[in-house]
Simulated assay, not measured.
Amino acid sequence: MKKTVMIVDDQMGIRLLLEEVVKAAGHDVMTAENGKEALDKMKGKRPDLLLIDYKLPIMDGPTLLSHLEEQGQIIPAIMMSGLVEEAMVHKERFENVKEVFAKPFNVEEARDHINRLLKERS
């Protein structure tokens, strides 16, 4: 069954790369440049998986996750960051965060993690 993945990153190159990976696996993609835009888009359609950058303009990854959990929305998430040690703290803090990727990440490993988390949601 086709799933939907939302990619939230302020770097267009990262969004495009991950979009290609997700679409190649046969899934739909939603994208956003920051947490606020992601929340706005999720009002129309709820994704099955989130790929969220830790540091974002306007609303960062942890703030987005806080809003989702306050609303009772439990959506598996992968947090991405160049500050992986700092981001790892949020794996403990948020129920939604299932994985943390260090940037730059290995595309093959990212694809495997994305596919595994989507299968767990089946």
Rank of each mutant, 00 (worst) to 15 (best):
L68H: 03
M1G: 11
A102D: 14
L18C: 00
E120P: 00
R15Y: 03
I58Y: 10
E92M: 13
M80Y: 06
M59E: 08
A110D: 05
I78V: 13
V100R: 13
R116M: 11
E99N: 11
A38E: 07
H90S: 04
E86C: 04
L56I: 04
S81C: 08
P104Y: 13
G26L: 13
D48F: 10
E19I: 08
P47K: 08
E33S: 13
D28Q: 13
L16M: 15
A38C: 10
V22F: 15
D28K: 10
L56Q: 03
L17C: 06
E120M: 12
H27W: 07
L51F: 04
G72V: 01
N96F: 00
E120G: 07
K43D: 09
H90C: 02
Q73C: 14
V8K: 05
V97T: 02
P76A: 07
P76H: 06
L51R: 03
I52V: 15
R111A: 15
H90R: 00
M79A: 02
L49T: 04
E99C: 10
F105G: 02
K2F: 06
L16P: 00
I78E: 02
V5D: 00
Q11V: 09
V22R: 14
R15K: 12
I78G: 02
E95S: 11
I52L: 15
V89N: 15
K41H: 12
A38W: 12
G35R: 10
L65T: 05
K103D: 07
D9I: 06
L64T: 08
Q71M: 15
V89Y: 15
D60E: 06
E33Y: 11
K41W: 09
L39E: 09
A32G: 06
T31L: 11
K3V: 08
V22H: 09
T4A: 02
Y54E: 01
K41I: 09
G82M: 06
G61Y: 04
A25P: 00
A25W: 04
